[in-house]
């Protein structure tokens, strides 16, 4: 990140006494006349004229009082032009930051906050949160609000506490009792400068309602009641039972439920609650019988409609309230009990035949009544007669067929018992079943109709003979009966045959379709998308290969890796396009050294940087995109709170140009933050830094050209599993025996300067497959980077790691490295380049604390192992 120190002005003050606040100067002024111009917000954009420049001297003055809350900062664009108005220099930017003063008090979002909390809540229960803002600079003491409860009403004892930082109001104890105080009012003050004496304050009110819980047990107004009821009587309001409850009126915590504990086994009584008065009304819903029950004891209990609060649940015990009930005897009527009686009458019963007896019962004595007389009430067909004294029922006359037919075999009449003394009447129902066994059906004859047009319509007559030897004919029993002719019968038979044939045909039909048998329903296999066959027609599904199992001496190793979609490298002409001269030389030498007779097009589809188009390729290729997205998200989050909230531009580069010896598919990340468009600093960067910077700054990066066929492409290095980068951290780069002539060059840059923040945790990239991620986020100032941090899993302050693997010829590299000719040897040279704030170049690579300086130097370390080292290279700084 490249930043510029900004000039600062204080808001609300006359800063003119500090003029000039800045000066600009061009060296071109030495030999020609230079005119300085400034532009931007506050100059030629509203608010106009806050800054002016002396066009000859380049002195910039501030002319007005500024308000940070209106314009937190200004960017002054400075130009130097010659007499012809041509720019002599590239435009410079000067950020002028407006320093905040505490000129804004806190403002509560509401004048009165409303909250509520249940009584009996535990201590420290959150009640509400107050919200206030301060327009002064965020994250500044001027906008830091401290909350404080000034007063409480009722003020018996403080019941609430407030978090001075968050404004959260919580209960102080668990003694809140709605039955004592149903509401509290608080006065709260918010003061900026964290409540300091020099802060500005505002005040608000909080109204806290105490919510009811069912923490009071109801009870009846009286502990016992005594009532008297008459037998055989119903009562709709026999007794009122008032219930007392201290909980909130009309709530379920207050409304009582009265229930019977005992005594109401006959279900004579019921209690109905009046929920507005909390009074239970005792009713008699089933008459009591004095002769059966003369006294009884009801026992009732009471609870609430709502469950009891857990704080009193254990204290609740059912308390019985006794109701003594006395049943009074009344003189009762004579009644038919049961109220109806059924008799059987047959055709053989003669006149005055005694059908049965139906007498009324005296309820007081339980025996037949002696005070009533009986008369027939409803008497269909005048069939029966009753003896007025004894209640004996007789046949008035022999039942005829006509009577039987008229009554349809059933007789239903009534008799009355009349008590002339009491002038009361009781009615009993008499039912008589007229059994038809004596009425014999003599003959049933079917007579065909003579209508030839409707041969199937016939009329059936029955001939009935009764015991009078009368023959009754012509009684139509069935009319328009359906008749089937031979043709109809034939059709019916055909129909049944067809119906029987259908299931047989269904069994024989092969609906599933024989294999290869053409059309038919094709069963959809489970766990599939129906007819989608991804790989069936296009060949086998690509298999992700375990790179660790790839034989290193296999000439097709690259094809294997490419198939798996891991980013492998070629190290021919591609990187040389962006390399400096030295690197280019190095690259060519590498090419010569590690070349293999493999086609140059093998790796092209994975070359270049991981931009949008290549992201798609990654998906297709098999790079773990979930990891990529997670990585970027966390990376962005790590920068989100960066100082001054500047946007960050992240770039992820897939190091397919790394070359032999690197873990397959290394990934680098680089972030440039800021608006500095002066990219001359790129000149000092290595090619990989430069490429990263170009990508980050949105510049188009030329794709790597195809390899020159005349340049025999080399094979990439051995494919290492990611964990094999670990030996590199200890100075032991993994090498393949078959690529013994290898040079490993690593670059590491460490951030320096103020304002770095704590690193965000980044998941171990090595757990995601063949991808090595080099972290790039800034680190906290307490972290002292060590050049030994090459373990990518732990390197939290490495920006970019470059590794070039290959033989190098020539004696001088960068003028610093003495490189032996490795083309035919097996020596390995590890070069680390460390950008660190140090003016010297310690050979021991002990880097001073980068926080202390803003200078950046590049340190290169050359580690030359002994010759003949293969594979297990041990390097020591």
């Amino acid at each position: 990140e490249w930043i510029k120190f900004a000039a600062a002005c204080r808001e609300g003050e006359d800063n003119s006494k500090r003029n000039p606040i800045a000066k600009i100067h061009s060296d071109c002024a030495a030999n020609q006349q230079v005119t300085y111009h400034i532009s931007g917000v506050g100059i030629d954009q509203p608010p106009y004229g806050i800054f002016v420049v002396n066009q000859k001297t380049g002195e910039i003055n501030i002319t007005s009082i500024v308000d940070r809350e209106v314009t937190p900062f200004f960017i002054i664009y400075c130009r130097a032009v010659n007499a012809q108005g041509q720019d002599l220099e590239r435009v410079l930017e000067l950020r002028v930051r407006i320093l905040d003063i505490n000129d804004n008090p806190p403002v509560f979002s509401m004048s009165t906050f409303l909250g509520q909390i249940e009584e009996n809540s535990n201590a420290n229960t959150l009640v509400m949160r107050l919200n206030a803002t301060d327009a002064d600079e965020p994250n500044n003491l001027n906008s830091k609000i401290a909350f404080k409860i000034i007063s409480q009403e009722p003020s018996d004892s403080p019941m609430f506490i407030i978090n001075r930082n968050t404004g959260e109001i919580r209960t102080m104890n668990n003694f809140l009792d709605r039955e004592q105080y149903g509401q509290y009012s608080l006065a709260v003050r918010g003061s900026d400068r964290d409540g300091g004496a020099d802060g500005m304050s505002a005040q608000c009110e909080c109204s806290i309602k105490i919510l009811d819980v069912n923490d009071n047990i109801p009870y009846t107004e009286l502990s016992s009641y005594s009532i008297t009821v008459k037998e055989n009587a119903l009562y709709s309001e026999l007794l009122k039972i008032r219930v007392i409850d201290l909980d909130e009126e009309f709530s379920a915590n207050w409304i009582a439920v009265i229930f019977f504990i005992s005594g109401n086994e006959g279900n004579w009584f019921a209690i109905e609650m009046n929920e507005r008065t909390n009074v239970g009304i005792l009713k008699v819903i089933k008459p009591l019988d004095y002769e059966a029950v003369k006294n009884l004891q009801l026992s009732i209990g009471v609870r609430n409609k709502a469950e009891f609060h857990h704080s009193i649940m254990s204290r609740y015990k059912v308390t019985a309230t006794a109701i003594s009930v006395t049943v009074l005897n009344v003189i009762e009527d004579s009644v038919f009990r049961p109220g109806s009686k059924t008799f059987i009458v047959t055709r053989n019963m003669e006149q005055n035949y005694k059908v049965g007896e139906f007498v009324a019962i005296d309820l007081d004595t339980g025996g037949p009544s002696t005070t009533v007389r009986y008369v027939m009430g409803n008497n269909p067909a005048d069939l029966l007669a009753i003896d007025s004294k004894t209640g004996i029922i007789t046949l008035r006359k022999k039942v005829t067929w006509d009577q039987y037919h008229m009554l349809n075999g059933k007789y239903k009449g009534t008799i009355l018992s009349i008590d002339d003394a009491l002038q009361r009447t009781c009615t009993g129902t008499v039912l008589v079943n007229l059994e038809d066994g004596d009425w014999e059906i003599l003959k049933t004859t079917t007579i065909k109709a003579d209508d030839r047009d409707k041969p199937e319509h016939t009329t059936t007559f029955s001939t009935i003979k009764n015991t009078d030897d009368r023959v009754i004919t012509g009684v139509p029993l069935i009319k328009d009966n359906v008749h089937f002719g031979p043709a109809g019968i034939g059709l019916l038979i055909m129909g049944f045959l067809v119906l029987g044939l259908v299931p047989f045909l269904l069994i024989c039909c092969d609906c599933g379709g024989a294999p290869g048998g053409g059309a038919g329903f094709e069963p959809v296999p489970e766990c599939s998308d129906g007819a989608i066959h991804s790989w069936a027609v296009e060949g086998p599904q690509p298999q992700l290969m375990d790179l660790t199992q790839i034989p290193l001496d296999n000439a097709n190793v690259i094809e294997c890796v490419d198939t798996s979609g891991v980013y492998t490298n070629e190290y021919c002409g591609r990187e040389t396009q962006d390399m400096g001269e030295e690197e280019r030389m190095r690259g060519f030498e590498l090419t010569d050294a590690v070349k293999t007779p493999r086609g140059p097009e093998t790796c092209q589809e994975y070359s270049g940087t991981l931009r949008r188009n290549s992201m798609r390729e990654c998906r297709e290729g098999g790079l773990n995109m979930n990891f990529m997205e997670s990585y970027f998200c966390q990376k962005a989050y790590a920068y989100a709170d960066e100082e001054e909230g500047r946007p960050s531009n992240d770039c992820l580069l897939i190091y397919d140009i790394e070359g032999v010896g690197s873990p397959a598919g290394s990934v680098g990340c680089c972030s440039f933050i800021g608006e500095d468009l002066d990219d001359s600093f790129l000149d000092n960067l290595g090619p990989k830094f430069k490429k990263l910077a170009d990508i980050t700054l949105g510049k188009s990066v030329e794709p790597y050209p195809d390899l020159d066929p005349s340049c025999p492409p080399e094979s990439t290095g051995p494919i290492y599993p990611p964990q094999e980068t670990e030996p590199l951290a200890s100075g032991c780069p993994p090498l393949s025996p078959c690529y013994g002539t290898t040079t490993v060059i690593s670059e590491s840059t460490y951030p320096s300067g103020p304002g770095v923040q704590h690193p965000m945790p980044i998941p171990d990239p090595l757990g995601y497959g063949n991808v090595t991620v080099t972290e790039s986020y800034a680190t906290s100032g307490t972290l002292k980077p060590s050049v030994h941090i090459h373990d990518n899993r732990h390197a939290s302050n490495v920006l970019v790691t470059e590794r070039v693997v290959g033989p190098i010829s020539g004696a001088d590299l960068h003028g610093m490295l003495e490189m032996p000719d490795l083309r035919d040897g097996s020596n390995v040279i590890v070069t680390e380049r460390v950008i660190a704030p140090s003016s010297s170049l310690p050979t021991t690579l002990t880097i001073s604390d980068p926080r202390e300086s803003s200078n950046v130097v590049v340190t290169e370390r050359v580690i030359r192992p002994t010759s003949g080292m293969m594979g297990t290279l041990a390097m020591h700084p």
Partner: peptide
């Protein structure tokens, strides 16, 4: 070279001090 200098308000002895703006790599 095209450079900007800004005033340092925090000098102890009251003298005006000018800082050239530098880019700094963090």
């Amino acid at each position: 070279e095209f450079q900007i200098q800004v005033r340092d308000y925090n000098t102890k002895n009251g003298t005006i001090k000018w800082h050239s703006i530098k880019r700094q790599k963090r």
